[in-house]
Each structure stands twice: as structure tokens, then as C-alpha cells.
Design a protein around this nucleic acid. Structure first.
Lengths: 194, 194
DNA sequence: CGGCTAAAAGCAATGTGTTTGCGTTAAGTC
DNA sequence: GACTTAACGCAAACACATTGCTTTTAGCCG
């Protein structure tokens, strides 16, 4: 469905894809995001611009793909023994990463070059996955747990909304507050997991 | 702070601004958002492209300005006599407008061409204003009311998050559910209105 | 293992969008 | 009514985006 609709998985195509992604990461670090152009990236990657245009459409879609890779969590959430602690530190860390200047930039890029919303969907899937792990562990310990949807709606969504739309307060205490709130819900929701 | 830092408020400058905005609205309706380019808009507006580039920087910032105008609510929220009813219909309508294809497009554009986040801030200010009206009315009626921040975090934020990041369910019942949830909070929060 | 087919990349020319210096207009001010 | 300067128009120079055609090569099948 994406800009890369079953790209030939091996050989040259794979090398080009990796080379272009690497070029984006390098140039982003060297010159800053705003200085990037397709011809520049292509030159660094050792390919012609037309190759990039044909595979990704434009710079924004390419940046979106790279941004999603940056937003993919690198490790499963920590296990501290209680749902409150696990969700709390996860939310704090999530807020920290997402609210940081690079985090904000990646979120913007991920949303930007994403006509069909598949990359944005990936981002929320990453968060849902992490939350599922935390909730499943707590559930096995016998704790009462809220639904994944509840946590997304009332912890993840407020954080992301503030990052995208509001200037104001974004600190660890806010994340904790949201987690406390989500834990207070507690009714295992009727049956509305998507 | 914006792309229009104290634009000369009267005369030609104002005419050009209005003319360009009108051109964007017309061409958006005629050709679709993706067909718009700066030279095209400039031609329709009867100005030269360089004027547009100097005032707005690029097409995305111009589109962002126009999008914010589209997202400005046109009327104060309806008064149905109870907080539950007022918030409920407001949330339903908000979801409807924002989740519609044009609504999504405007949200994207508003976020896109907005380096400093001021346009996005405006959007959330619009919502906060509407909510404030509803809450103030209910408060005068003697009803117990949640804080504005609570409503934004637990009604507006989940709706916007789903629109931006999740493919799934977005219907009137969902909006009602979020409102019920927000009403269940009820504790007038410590003192955290911005 | 060698040949076939078509997807993907290279190349190059063309077209369009963007940027910039300079002269001109006109808004705001005294 | 004259002055100052922000904002606009014009046009050239520049960079980026697009596209037809050719060449390479991954994936497949005999």
C-alpha cells in the first residue's frame, strides 16, 4: 500500500533503499533537516535524483519513511513490578522522546509525507504494542488493568495533542497524572478493542 | 511571530492578502488542493509569485494560514440546557467536522506549514474557547463542571489523535463516550488552567 | 545452470517552481 | 503636502521536478 509497494526485496533495490535512507540520516545530522533536498540526498547516496523521485514520489514521503524508523521503539518497556510503575516510566519516557526537538521533527515528518496515513498508523501501532506488553504483564500478575484503547485515549493522545497543538506544560509530572487518571478508570471496557 | 509580522494593516497590503487567500479558496474548490502551486495562486490573485514567496515563504505556510481560517468555529456552541447535552453535541459536531475529508486536509495543512506552531496553537485555542463557553454556562446554572484542560485532554485530544494517527472507529457514539468519561471526572482540578 | 521478462536504475533533456537584485508604488508619519 | 520605507512588480538566474528512453539485473522457469 505504501510508497514502497513490495519493493524488490533483495539485491540492488535493497542496497539503494538502504543507501538513500542512510544518506538522509547523515545529511540530517550534518546540515539539519531543512537543508535537505532530493538531489542532495541522491548525490550522497550515489544514485540519480530520478530514482528517488520514482520510488518515493517526493522528499516528504522519503522523510516520512525515515522518521517512522526513528520513532520505532528500540526496547520493550521496563518491568518494575507494578502496573503503576511500568506505565508511569513508560509514559515519562514516551513524553520525553516525543516532546524533544528531534522527536517533534520526526512526528511532523511522519505525518507530513503520508497521504494514506499508513505511516501515522504505524506510529500509533508502536505505542499500542508497548502498552500491550505492559498491560499483559500486569494482567498476569493479577492486577486489574484498563484496556489498551483507554490508555491510548487518555495517556498517549493528550501527550501527542499537546505536542502538536499546544505551547504549554509538558513534564514528567503531567505524564504521571495522565497515568494515574487512566488507572482510575479500571473498568475493563465492554468489548471495544479495535 | 508569524509569517506575517505586523503586515501593513491597510490599503494595498491588506488587499493583496485578501486577494491571495481568496485565490487559494477558489482554486482549492475548482482544482483540488494538490493542484495548487504558488505561481498558479499568484496569477489568480493578480499578483506576482515573488510577492507570495516574500510574504508567506512557501506554499505550505500560505496553505496553513488559510486552513486555520477554515477551522475557526463559525458560531458559539448550542445551549441545550444541560452540560451533558451541550458538551455532547459540541463533541459530536467537532468530531464530524474534523474527521471529514476536508477537515482532515485542513488539519494537515495547518500543522504542516507552521514552523513555530502558532497556527496549531490557534486551533487548540478555538476549541478551548468553545469549551469555556459551555463550561461557564453550566457553571452559572450551578452544575459541577470539569476543568477546561480536562475536557481538552480527554475529549478533544483523543479525537484528534485518532484522526491523525489511527485508522479506526470515529463516530458520534465515540464522542459521547468521551464526554461521559470527562463528566465522570468532576473534581474541579487544583488550579491548572493556562 | 543458462536464458527470459519485467522491475528498477541510469541518463539526459525539458519544464516548472523558487530565489534574488533592482526599480517603482504607495502606506504611514511628521 | 513632503518624506521614509515597507511592500510590490519585473525579469533574470538558479535549482528542483518530471519524463521518455536505454541499460542493468533480480526473480523465475525451463
Amino acid at each position: 500500500m505504501s510508497p514502497k509497494p513490495m519493493v524488490r526485496p533483495g539485491g540492488r533495490s535493497a542496497r539503494v533503499q538502504e543507501s538513500v535512507h542512510a544518506a538522509v540520516r547523515q545529511l540530517q545530522a550534518e546540515l539539519g533537516r531543512d537543508a535537505l533536498t532530493v538531489p542532495l540526498v541522491a548525490a550522497r547516496a550515489g544514485v540519480t535524483p530520478s530514482t528517488v523521485y520514482r520510488r518515493w514520489g517526493d522528499l516528504q514521503e522519503l522523510m516520512s519513511d525515515v522518521a517512522v524508523e526513528h520513532l520505532r521503539p528500540e526496547a520493550p518497556p521496563a518491568d518494575l513490578g507494578t502496573l503503576r510503575a511500568d506505565l508511569g516510566v513508560w509514559a515519562e519516557q514516551f513524553l520525553d522522546e516525543m516532546a524533544s526537538p528531534p522527536g517533534r521533527a520526526y512526528i511532523r515528518d511522519a505525518l507530513l509525507g503520508d497521504p494514506d496515513g499508513s505511516n501515522a498508523g504505524l506510529c500509533s501501532a508502536y505505542a499500542a504494542e508497548q502498552i500491550d506488553v505492559v498491560l499483559a504483564r500486569a494482567s498476569e500478575r493479577g492486577e486489574a488493568v484498563p484496556g489498551t484503547e483507554q490508555v491510548i485515549d487518555h495517556v498517549v493522545a493528550p501527550i501527542m495533542y499537546r505536542i502538536l497543538f499546544r505551547p504549554g506544560r509538558l513534564d514528567a509530572a503531567y505524564a504521571r497524572e495522565l497515568v494515574e487518571h487512566a488507572l482510575a478508570i479500571r473498568r475493563p471496557p465492554p468489548a471495544e478493542q479495535s
